[in-house]
Structures are given as structure tokens and as C-alpha cells.
Design a protein around this nucleic acid. Structure first.
Lengths: 214, 214
DNA sequence: TGCAATAGTGTGAAGTTGACACTAACATAA
DNA sequence: TTATGTTAGTGTCAACTTCACACTATTGCA
């Protein structure tokens, strides 16, 4: 066999979550700064499985929604070697966030997409593409439910949409539209948080499943 | 350095064209049958460039619309080796089709997507996914223009849509919608073909560019 | 008990979509 | 030259969807 040119095939994952009314990304430490969680695909390992594994190993996140985004292969994207990255994005429900009250150096950290530090390689572009894709999918799928905890209020769901789109939505129209989709149902329970009228708690009818609309 | 596990990173391309009112795919010869055009990515070669190169080398097609589709990496998709394929699809305008009046053995051949022979590996699934993506994009982009020759009639454009979607469309509504998109313009010329009223010839306002709608 | 804060609810106007049928212009053959 | 076959080209109305818009309800707390 001829000598094989060095080629690094990796997966990189953009883990999204809504935290404090912001869309944030969970970043891993890099020698000199930040990068997306990810790494080389092992022989015999499925691409999706590799993405899940790195997410687990580097951030502790598991059982999240994961979708292939795009494959980046510019020859000069990594100055050190020929690196091809199969990029994914993950949606982390608000309930399952690892609490990092005091984010240590060396630990992954959540950062708002609108205030990203410089990232390794082309990871900044990957995040930007993932954000665009996510925003587009809000319009024609029930994907936003993957960012919600098991039980949530309609106001919370609306806030998630608004945060991702970066624009306010009309409350009545939003509720009408969502309920017409027949993708969520009332639990009968109420959320009493704060000094005001309690809100009904809803849950996804088909958790884990993303339906297309229309 | 540790011995590197053998990994084949390839591109495969689904070249679509409309021929004789059918959506067809251009296939290449494979030892025992048919496969999609494609092959291993060279060191230092961009992914898109590799897809274009194989399309040129194996089918003679150049200057076509090309878009990344999905990356396939099931460990068992190729029984012979670990093979990861970055799949693309290409849209070939009706005018630029290589004429293969007598398709030789050993030459690529156009085949209707609804009558595909057995293909190598998972290439059948790749074609199916590409077809779904193309059909979906008709609804929210001007991508169908990439399948048209430089000048074309509205009836021809409608036939292309109908062929890809597999369902008839209303003539008046179709024309209204397309013209409202402001993506094509009259050339002033007429197509006189056959014993009937000639049709106006249109051309794309921004050839090569695919606009999103709405 | 009143104030602050969020939950929850309906209508009408504007715009979009979808169904539908006839006349126009040409080539060809009788 | 006329009749016939074939495709091109055109508008309206009803149904539906989208969008803008403001008030009452329920709670905790001061």
C-alpha cells in the first residue's frame, strides 16, 4: 500500500441551550482558548456515535437531540494538518444543564452566541451556521421543544422562540399557532413562580421527536 | 506516529437532470454494476473541488450547480474498508447534457430515479435523500432554474416542477407564483416548436444564483 | 387591600392560496 | 382555404391564513 497522507476526520458539536433568556453554546477548553467539543472519529465508529461520545466525554451531556449540520473540509482550515470536520449541533433541554456555579478553568463553559470569544479554527463559522439552521427550523418544525424541560409553560416556549429568532412575537398569535400544531398537551399542573398568576404546564406529546409542519 | 487505521474519505455526487419529462440520475460504471460518480478526496483538495473534479472526470459535466447533501459514515456501509462519503448533488441544465445516443458499456448512463438499478453500497439511499431535498427546496427557493437551459418557456419550467414533485400543478397559479418571485424575465423571443401557438422564452435574472423565497 | 407582575383570551382586516374555463396562435392535413 | 389539433396565455372569487391589537384574571407581597 502507498503511504497514506495524514488526514484527520473529526466531529465537532455545537451544543445549544437557552440560559437566562440567551442562546448559549457550550465550549471546551483549547490550548490557547476555546473550541467546540469534538475530536477524531475512531475506526469502526459511527459519525453520530462519535459526536455523542465527545459530547459526553467533554461536557457530560447525554441523551440530547443531535443533528448533522455540515461537513467542513477547506484544506487550510487547520494549519497543522489536513482536517475534515463533520459538524453537528445538539439541543440541550433547560432542565438537564450541568450546573457550573463556579466555572473552573479547564472546564467547559457556556457562552452567549452573541458574545463568543475567538474560537479555534473555523469553529466560529460552524456556530454561526448552526444558529442560522436552528432559526430556520423554528419556522417549519417542532424543534424548539428539544430545548425545553419536560414540563414548561407557553410563555417559556415563546421566550425560547424569541431568543433564537432575536425578535419579539405576538403572544396570542404564538399560542394559537403552537396549539394548532397539536404537538404539546396540558399536564393539568400549574407553575407557580413569582408573585403573579400561575401558568399552565405543558409537555411534548411526542418527546424526542421533531415533526415537520405543514 | 501510531499506525493509521485505513480510512477512505470520498465524495459522491448525485447528478440530476430532467430528460424526457423524467428526473434522471447520471450513474457511473462499477465493477459489477452502477454507482454514483465520485472517489477519494486528495490531500489538499477542497471537498467541493473534489466533487466537481470527479463529476468532470467521470461524466464530463462541468459548471453545474453543486450543493453538499449529507455525510454518510456508517461503519459497515462499505464491507471492504472504513469509508466515509461526503455526498453532493448536482443539477445539470437540460441544454448542457452530453448526448449519449448510443450509451456504451463503460460509459456513464442516465437512469430515471423511479427505475434505478441496484447501486453500489448505500448509493441508493443517497439518491433518495437527494431527491427529497430537491423536492423540498422547490417550495422555498428558485433552485429549479438550475435545471433549465439558458432560455426556456414557463410550460417547460412547470413541467420540471411537476416531474420532481410527482404531481400536476395548476397552470395559472404556477405562472402567477413564479412571476411574482421576480427571478425570471422575458427575452422577447419566442419558442416555436410543434404545430401550435409559440411560447415566450424566459431567462433567469440571476443565473447561477439560488434565491430563497419569502 | 391594593399594587406589581405575568397568564390567558377573540375579533376583524389584510393578504395568500387554490379552484376553475375559455380564447389565442400556430402547423398540418384535408 | 379551411378545419383540426395542440399548446400558450389570461382573471376572478371563495376559502383560508396571517397579523395586528387590549383587556381581564390570578397570584405574591408590601
Amino acid at each position: 500500500m502507498p503511504p497514506r497522507a495524514p488526514l484527520a476526520l473529526t466531529t465537532d458539536v455545537v451544543p445549544f441551550a437557552i440560559r437566562a433568556e440567551r442562546l448559549e453554546v457550550l465550549l471546551a477548553r483549547h490550548s490557547t482558548g476555546w473550541r467546540l467539543p469534538g475530536g477524531p472519529i475512531e475506526p469502526g465508529e459511527d459519525l453520530d456515535a462519535a459526536a455523542r461520545r465527545y459530547l459526553m466525554e467533554q461536557t457530560g451531556l447525554r441523551d440530547v437531540y443531535l443533528e448533522q449540520l455540515y461537513t467542513f473540509g477547506q484544506p487550510d482550515r487547520d494549519p497543522g494538518q489536513r482536517a475534515v470536520a463533520v459538524a453537528y449541533y445538539a439541543l440541550v433541554p433547560a432542565g438537564s444543564l450541568p450546573v457550573d456555579a463556579a466555572p473552573a478553568v479547564d472546564r467547559p463553559g457556556w457562552v452567549g452566541v452573541d458574545a463568543l470569544p475567538a474560537l479555534a479554527l473555523d469553529h466560529g463559522e460552524i456556530v454561526a451556521l448552526a444558529h442560522r439552521r436552528l432559526a430556520a427550523k423554528l419556522a417549519y418544525s417542532t424543534i424548539a421543544l428539544q430545548l425545553m424541560p419536560e414540563r414548561f409553560t407557553l410563555s417559556e416556549l415563546q421566550a425560547v422562540h424569541e431568543t433564537i429568532l432575536g425578535e419579539p412575537l405576538d403572544k396570542r398569535n404564538f399560542r394559537k399557532r403552537i396549539l394548532a400544531l397539536d404537538c404539546i398537551e396540558m399536564t393539568g399542573e400549574m407553575a407557580r413562580r413569582g408573585g403573579h398568576r400561575p401558568a399552565r404546564l405543558y409537555r411534548a406529546k411526542r418527546p424526542g421527536q421533531v415533526d415537520f409542519i405543514k
